[in-house]
Amino acid sequence: MDLTGASALVVGGAGGFGEATVRRLVQAGAKVVIADLAADKGKTLADELGEQAVFVPTDVTSDESVEAAIAAAVELGPLRAAVVVHGGPAAGKRLVNRSGQAYPVETFQRTIDIFLVGTFRVVSKVAAAMSQNEPLDSNQRGVIITTASIAGFEGQVGQTDYSAAKGGVIGFNLTAARDLAPTGIRVVCIAPGTFFTPAYRMEEAEAQAKWGPGVPNPKRMGHADEYAKLALSIVDNDYINGETIRIDGAQRFNI
């Protein structure tokens, strides 16, 4: 997929994975919409990248907000690539706590709304926009990359809601790719392992010392740009479709 003269959308574009992906997409020749709730970071990144990027405040739980971000991308050029990599709150609590209290259903629902329903909302609306594109080689109109987690395969203690949400993203990936095949739109999911991002709220050296040794090879946390490079490889290779790709240094979670 050649992005020269095209637009791209990165939902969560002001965060760790998102910022790195925005930069890679700009380098590939796309004009990029940075869609995020983090206005200060998003505007700063857009200002740095100049005419190649624009920030649009975006809430993945709102149809109108997502549609506005997509419309902004279409104004920049044919929307050929979308990467859904937004974050959100993670409670990290067991189903029943030490006091015998059950995990709140409302918290579970909120996590599902953000990570699973929010991802589906973006995918479906982006696909509708991409379906209007003129086809390129092999009848390709666009590519959508979603972001799961290895927690969607083997979640850790306290990750019931997060694992369910990310497992859902993995679960609908192949079906979405098959649904959109007649329109020439690919759907691919990336499932990252332990990556260092600003979400850790600590210095990288401290995080690497704590979590890096648990990764088989290379024995360190991943870098956000390694996610971004994989995303660009997926965009570039039209034959990657319907797959969930783990990028985790061969890491598997054990209880």
Rank of each mutant, 00 (worst) to 15 (best):
G118K: 02
T21S: 12
M1F: 07
S138P: 00
F55C: 03
A102S: 14
A73F: 02
G118N: 07
G13Y: 03
M1I: 13
S131G: 11
A39F: 06
T44P: 06
E204T: 10
M202S: 14
G118Q: 04
G42Q: 01
A6R: 04
A128I: 00
A69C: 13
D137Q: 13
A90C: 06
A148M: 09
A199F: 12
A81C: 13
G249T: 06
S62A: 14
E203C: 04
S233H: 14
Q132L: 15
N139F: 08
A129Q: 02
A8C: 11
C189D: 08
A209V: 12
N241L: 09
L180F: 13
G87W: 01
D161A: 15
M202L: 12
A228E: 02
T160R: 00
N241A: 08
T244Q: 10
T61C: 14
I234E: 05
A38C: 10
N133P: 04
I144H: 01
M221F: 07
G142P: 01
P218H: 07
E19S: 14
Q159S: 14
N173G: 08
L37Y: 08
L232Q: 00
V96H: 12
Q156D: 14
L180W: 04
Q159G: 06
Q140F: 13
P182V: 09
K41V: 00
Q101D: 14
S163C: 10
T58Q: 05
T61I: 07
K43W: 05
P89Q: 14
T175Y: 06
A30Q: 02
M221E: 01
P198H: 11
V117Q: 06
P89S: 12
Q156T: 10
D47T: 13
F195Y: 11
A224G: 09
E51A: 15
A38P: 07
L136R: 12
N217F: 15
E64H: 13
T119Q: 05
L79C: 06
V157G: 11
A6F: 08
G167E: 11
G92Y: 12
Q132R: 15
A128L: 13
P213Y: 11
K93H: 12
C189H: 05
G242H: 04
V235E: 03
A82Y: 01
R98H: 12
R186F: 01
G152R: 01
E75W: 00
G158M: 12
L180M: 12
R201M: 13
A91D: 14
R178Q: 14
A231W: 00
Q208A: 08
G13D: 05
V84W: 00
E75P: 04
V169P: 03
V126Y: 02
A28E: 07
Y162V: 06
E154L: 11
E154Q: 15
L76H: 00
D161L: 07
G18N: 05
V56A: 06
S138T: 13
L95W: 10
L76Q: 03
S7H: 06
T183G: 05
E226L: 11
G167D: 12
A81S: 10
L174W: 14
A91Q: 10
